[in-house]
Design a binder for these strands. Sequence first.
RNA 1: GCGGUCGUAGCUCAGUAGGUAGAGCAUCGGGUUGUGAUCCUGAGGGUCGCGGGUUCAAAUCCCGUCGAUCGCCCCA
Length: 450
Amino acid sequence: MAAFQSPKGTRDFYPDQMALRRHVENIWRKASVDCGFDEIEGPTFEHLSLFTAKSGPGIVSELFSFRRAGGSDDYALRPEFTPTLARMAAARAGTLSVPTKWFAIPLHFRAERPQRGRLREFVQWNVDLLGSEGAAADCDVIACAALALERLGLQPTDVRFRLAHRGASAAVLTAAGVAGEHIGEAFELLDRRDKLSPEEFQTRAVKLGLDAAAQKRFAAIAGTKLPVSASMNDVAASLGVDADVLAPLAELSEKLNSLGLSDWCQWDFGIVRGLAYYTGTVFEVHECAGKERAIAGGGRYDGLVELFGGPKMPAIGFGMGDVVLGLVLADKGLLPKDGGLLLPRPDVFLISDGSDAAEKALPKLVMQIRRAGLHARHSWKATKNVGKLLSDAGKCRARSALILGAEMADGAVAIKDLDGGGQRVVPLGEVVTTLLAMTTANTSNPSKEI
RNA sequence: GCGGUCGUAGCUCAGUAGGUAGAGCAUCGGGUUGUGAUCCUGAGGGUCGCGGGUUCAAAUCCCGUCGAUCGCCCCA
């Protein structure tokens, strides 16, 4: 066994796993671009203070932080992308178009104990829309997430966006008897209700000044889940508030309906999101049966850019990690068991019969074909057994095999279509054009992309 | 940071009172028949996660440690 292991909570990506990772990343990237977001990237590590500025000193124990030998500055590997995004936005705030739509697919690092769905190094897709308030902006990023999930093969029966709105939830809690100064604690209680014992829940509820009736109401609110297409009057009625208190939800509902996203979404008044900085819409994406951790989470954080030294700039965004998503996709059979099936297919695999003429011609031909922009591989084996070599061509899923054999005497080679099975003899001078023609005829195959 | 389970070749596993490691697949090579194959044949690869202890002797028992996994804490 190896003397060295990969560090705790990290992964090695061999070609098969890397192909799976790229498959997901490519879909994320394409969905982002199609939705009008521009890709950005920042440093893998930042000044430690950037992270403590947002999350407080307590965050340090969750970070991989370090100081250069002999240096005096403290750094940390980024545990999330939002501070970097906010820093970048603040620095260019004066020149950014409105709205500014950015996405990133960075690696993140967190010094936590690994668990199912949670590692110390992971990829997280971040999508953010800056400079625009309102439901249209909120729904724009939600739509982008939904588009990617749909392209990954998921359906509204597989995953669900659980949405809430901090303002609306606060109004509902107030109506339920929570005093204004206790709203923060009430959110915390709402968020943690499933983890607490009934006794603990009650103790905390009493601290919020809730009597028995109000506690019951509170619990009912926490468990309220409704379709976003439900009428606001019905939603208001089931929560015991006036419909005008739910105005933010009404706007969201209208936009989601018009975007055809209602099936993907539901109201869930138990969704709070732990982050103190969220100011409006908040949401999480979960597997419908409640398996796994949240696939994605996000919301509106209008004070964030200001927190990092910029102007007041409304913002909505979300993050989606590769770990939980990968588990869900695997559960649903939406990833090939053999990641090798996602590796790029060679357009041609060259085989030599071992004769001098073939051995000499092969490398030249390979280079010619590659210069033409095609993916060419060739056997490195010593054997001249055409059957064994063709089997190699099949293993790497080549589209065609080019056999340099007896036909060389006539200045020609055999090209076998490994998908269709046909074979023809082609003069050396026409090899590249023939292969190009075969490839363009095959552009429908998705594995050809990127 | 705290508890439960687990750790033998690249993969799936066997290894049966403790007696100094095995199979299938995969990989690599040779041979035969010009075509993804069959057949024949050979090889490499593990100090049994690592370290210590008990013993004449440990993959097997004990302790520690590292890693994986499940739960708690946390969850940006």
